[in-house]
């Protein structure tokens, strides 16, 4: 997907918000958009998602399955959360059974399964944000646009969204996101763009090897530094899907700690997910660190 000489102004004679934007968004990449408030980041994301059309220039090659999470989603809709997700799944092209199953699965993953029958108008801010994120992930989009989608989510749901973003990229989707937390998916973006005074320029991702931009598949092939996390005492079994797909070693006889080994890039997200699931972190070591 590509943006060529894209410009956007509000209304017919409003001021230009963006000028001469050229962006290349290949499949299977994670793209971060930076910028201070009011610089036009959200406008750029809306154009990428196809919500707004550019005033100037053109957008080519946008995938059919596009999903967008707006920056605020305190929506008073006359549906229950479950029904809303089923409607959105159908609009994104899923059949009735697949839409219903997907709605249940994603609410479960974000820890909002008990709110499936709650009216949208009665949801808390955080839960309605979970619904906003769930609708975007329902139909396995090929283009996922996240405008500060993490804001308002609890720690477990944030880790889950991080994991979902990695899954989408690994499945060949383009993911474009804005988040004010610099640690969000730090070092994982394939490209970083900065929006300032209506222009967009590429920033070299600081933590990337200059030899090439590795994709998700390459990352798994090259062993980087790994982190061993020894945990114990969770109130239940380990959560089904953990960020970074760690190697889990069950406790041996006379031992209480379960050991998880994961890429250093995913360790923060994994720790957050474990803490959110009420597990106790006993011990933390790194292996293969080049200091």
């Amino acid at each position: 997907m590509r943006l060529e000489h894209v410009g956007r102004r509000h209304g017919l004679r409003g001021p230009w918000v963006l000028r001469e934007v050229g962006l290349d968004l290949p499949a299977g990449t994670l793209v971060r958009v930076l910028g201070t408030n009011g610089t036009g980041k959200s406008t750029l994301l809306r154009i990428v998602a196809g919500v707004d059309a550019p005033t100037d220039g053109r957008v080519t090659g946008r995938p059919d399955r596009t999903a967008y999470v707006p920056e605020r989603f305190p929506v008073a809709l006359p549906f229950t959360a479950g029904d809303y997700l089923v409607h959105l799944g159908r609009i994104q092209g899923l059949g009735p059974a697949a839409a219903r199953a997907g709605a249940g699965e994603w609410l479960e993953r974000f820890g909002a399964a008990e709110h499936a029958r709650t009216d949208m108008a009665e949801l808390s801010k955080g839960t309605s944000q979970k619904v906003a994120v769930a609708q975007a992930l329902l139909a396995d989009p090929d283009l996922l646009v996240l405008d500060e989608a993490w804001t308002g989510l609890d720690t477990g749901a944030r880790a889950e969204l991080d994991a979902a973003v990695r899954e989408r990229r690994a499945a060949g989707a383009t993911v474009v996101f804005v988040d004010h937390d610099p640690r969000r998916l730090a070092g994982e973006a394939d490209a970083v763009y900065e929006v300032a005074s209506g222009r967009v320029r590429e920033k070299a991702p600081p933590e990337r090897d200059p030899a090439g931009t590795p994709t998700g598949a390459d990352e798994e092939a090259t062993p980087g530094p790994r982190v061993r996390i020894a945990v114990s005492g969770g109130r239940g079994p380990l959560p089904g899907r953990l960020p970074g797909a760690p190697v889990v070693t069950a406790p041996g006889p006379g031992d209480t700690a379960t050991v998880l080994t994961v890429d250093a890039a995913h360790s923060d997200a994994l720790l957050a997910a474990l803490l959110a699931a009420s597990w106790h972190i006993d011990h933390l070591t790194t292996e293969g660190v080049r200091v």
Partner: peptide, 16 residues
Amino acid sequence: HEPPAARSVVAAAAGR
């Protein structure tokens, strides 16, 4: 009557 946020979400999924 559709809230703007919900409208944007539908517009991205189906086209404005």
